[in-house]
Amino acid sequence: MLELRLVQGSLLKKVLEAIKDLVNDANFDCSATGFSLQAMDSSHVALVALLLRNEGFEHYRCDRNISMGMNLGNMNKMLKCAGNDDIITLKADDGSDTVTFMFESPNQDKIADFEMKLMDIDSEHLGIPEAEYHAIVRMPSAEFARICKDLSSIGDTVVISVTKEGVKFSTKGDIGTANIVCRQNTTVDKPEEATVIEMKEPVSLTFALRYMNSFAKATPLSHTVTISLSSELPVVVEYKIEDMGYVRFYLAPKIEE
């Protein structure tokens, strides 16, 4: 028996909006500690890891570990039917091949349930090794989204370079080149507006912008984004979900032929 009641149902709606274009089908894993997902995009270039810890739910019951295969496009269709202020409850019986999403309006005057068919998905969890990152940049998520969007109108790839000067996002294309430098800035009114750069050593890596733009769909989940870089490792683009967990995107770099 599985029953997860999320008062802030809009969080789940935002999570699906953030990952549905990157991943078609995925297994949601539910255990006593939380609700999680790990999945790759179809070309095996990027990986998404989601964690929603049990303590973030108003009610969390998961009698035994279960893995529920879902088509994220279909799940998103169902969650779009929930209001932004609705409470969302996920329910599944042991051995069932369906999951039910229950939507309750805040004043309890409307209750809907949507039952979705589960699917068998063959997927293996990848082991993500602990890594020491050469540079970690924390910046406003909207700023990062803006930079990725702007650069993708010029080129297809972004070079992210961290030096003591700051973090530089560069691209080039047929029409020209673009460089955007963000310097560390902690003298802001609100902590979420700060740009904080922790650098152990300079690093410069090249990534496909279309994936970065896909990751930026998680912007509504968090005011800030953390970008962790090490040479010859996938970048980690992390959006923390307040009090609950995170969505992390891993993207393999492009290298010289």
Partner: peptide
């Protein structure tokens, strides 16, 4: 020309 690496080159299957 740069080549896109796979995430599977970094993260191992169990």
């Amino acid at each position: 020309m740069k080549r896109q690496q796979s995430i599977l080159s970094f993260f191992q299957k169990p």
